[in-house]
């Protein structure tokens, strides 16, 4: 059910990932102030944007579960949050590397985007203990969905709060108007963000397919056992 279209999607992902890496290394110019290290931007920022969108998407899918009661929506929401957390680890690591290179410290507190991402990440880490300490499957789906919705709404408000609290010092390669990036950088960035989005969708589908298959296997095995004993 989820495996449909997985193959073309994976091929598209691989092609675009390769294209974006090629663009990053051979096409995009070195940044005037930060030099070569600034290229981590093409990995870090798309990962961060996709992870945050994944968190919010998990909340929206959770609304789908609460409205329809269809457990497939809960599985989608769970896998979206799960993938976003994995992407989130990568965001924090690449962010720390970039911070070390740009400012000389692995962690910088007066950097609103990094700090708000950490808070969001810490909150979502609680999703696992919450989800897996509830045994009843229906209740598990319901409680996880409630968490996903509340946390999804928390993401933007947290960003607003942290941004207000800190001085505005992020290396704003993409300025607020979005107009300061030269054309070749912008093209590379766009390709990277599409590639990372595809990567997320592919992994999400793959994980769902795997979960679905193992559930089906369990069901079949149970039926087989019932028949053998009968």
């Amino acid at each position: 059910m989820y495996s449909k279209g997985l193959k073309p999607l994976s091929i598209a992902t691989v092609v675009l990932m390769a294209a974006s890496l090629a663009l990053v290394f051979f096409y995009a110019p070195n940044d005037a102030d930060q030099g070569f290290v600034q290229k981590i931007f093409y990995v870090h920022v798309p990962l961060a944007i996709v992870a945050l969108c994944g968190f919010v998407a998990g909340g929206i899918m959770a609304i789908g579960y609460l409205r329809s009661g269809d457990r497939a929506w809960d599985a989608r929401s769970y896998v979206a949050i799960h993938m976003s957390i994995i992407f989130g680890v990568a965001v924090l690591i690449t962010g720390a590397i970039w911070a070390k290179a740009a400012w000389g410290h692995w962690w910088v507190w007066d950097e609103p985007v990094l700090v708000s991402f950490l808070v969001v990440f810490l909150l979502y880490c609680v999703y696992y203990p919450l989800r897996f300490s509830i045994e009843d499957p229906d209740r598990q789906a319901r409680y996880s969905s409630v968490f996903a919705i509340a946390a999804g709404a928390f993401v933007p408000i947290n960003f607003a709060a942290v941004r207000m609290a800190e001085a505005f010092t992020h290396p704003r390669v993409l300025s607020q108007t979005g107009g300061s990036m030269p054309g070749d950088m912008r093209l590379t960035f766009l390709v990277s963000i599409i590639a990372v989005t595809l990567l997320f969708v592919t992994l999400w589908k793959l994980e769902l397919t795997g979960k679905h298959a193992s559930m089906q296997l369990k069901r079949l095995r149970r039926r087989l056992e019932a028949e053998a004993t009968a």
Binding site: V119, V120, L122, L123, V126, F147, A150, F154, A160, V162
Partner: peptide
């Protein structure tokens, strides 16, 4: 505490 503390950060 794990759930409440990040949520009240703002």
């Amino acid at each position: 505490p794990l759930l409440l503390l990040p949520l009240v950060m703002p």
